[in-house]
């Protein structure tokens, strides 16, 4: 028993033979390692929740002041990945809707695809105006497939001609 106790007391002392140890450092390393494992696990959980795009933490819906225009998107995007966004415009009079993509939006994203395609698009001061035809008094949904080009926090705007606009604030990971 005495021998065993002696072992215990010498367990964490540093040997110099056959190799020179540094048990103080080794113990600190283990502590850091255990904390880091916790952090890794936390990161995986956060990734599942959508901290890095796609997930409950990330999806959001933004409406303009009047409630006519609504954008469904993610708060977090990744640079170079293909990301989705949906625009909904409530039914209104007439059979066409004009949507204005702001200059900052065009700078931050490459629009890879748009469904339905606009029947007309033209450059206007402050961005790009898209004309969509729809049924009389029918709502409009536009699906966008985007590739973020910017990195970091990005502010941009999408508006309705003669209506409100939604301000988008997103974080784009490198």
């Amino acid at each position: 028993m005495a021998e065993h106790e002696q072992d215990e007391s010498g367990m964490w002392s540093s040997r110099s033979h056959p190799v020179s140890e540094d048990m103080g450092f080794q113990t600190a390393e283990w502590t850091v390692e255990r904390i880091a494992w916790g952090a890794l696990f936390g990161l995986v959980v956060l990734a599942c929740l959508g901290l890095f795009s796609v997930g409950p933490l990330s999806s959001t819906t933004i409406r303009d002041g009047t409630g006519r225009l609504q954008a469904e998107l993610d708060r977090f995007y990744r640079n170079g990945a293909t990301e989705n966004m949906r625009l909904r415009v409530e039914a209104g009079p007439g059979d066409e809707t004009r949507i204005l993509l702001g200059a900052a939006f065009l700078d931050a994203f490459t629009v890879e695809a748009m469904q339905p395609e606009p029947s007309e698009s033209r450059s206007v001061p402050g961005g790009l105006e898209l004309l969509f035809r729809r049924g009389e008094n029918a709502p409009l949904s536009v699906y966008l497939s985007l590739r973020p080009d910017a990195i970091g926090f990005t502010r941009s705007e999408i508006g309705l001609a003669g209506g409100g606009k939604v301000a988008l604030g997103q974080f784009i990971y490198p």
Binding site: D7, M11, W12, R15, V19, S20, E21, M23, Q26, E29
Partner: peptide
């Protein structure tokens, strides 16, 4: 890189380590 560590000493495994 960390440091090397003795885990068996004179035939006795140092279990806690």
């Amino acid at each position: 890189d960390g440091v090397p560590m003795v885990i068996v000493e004179h035939g006795k495994p140092l279990h806690p380590r």
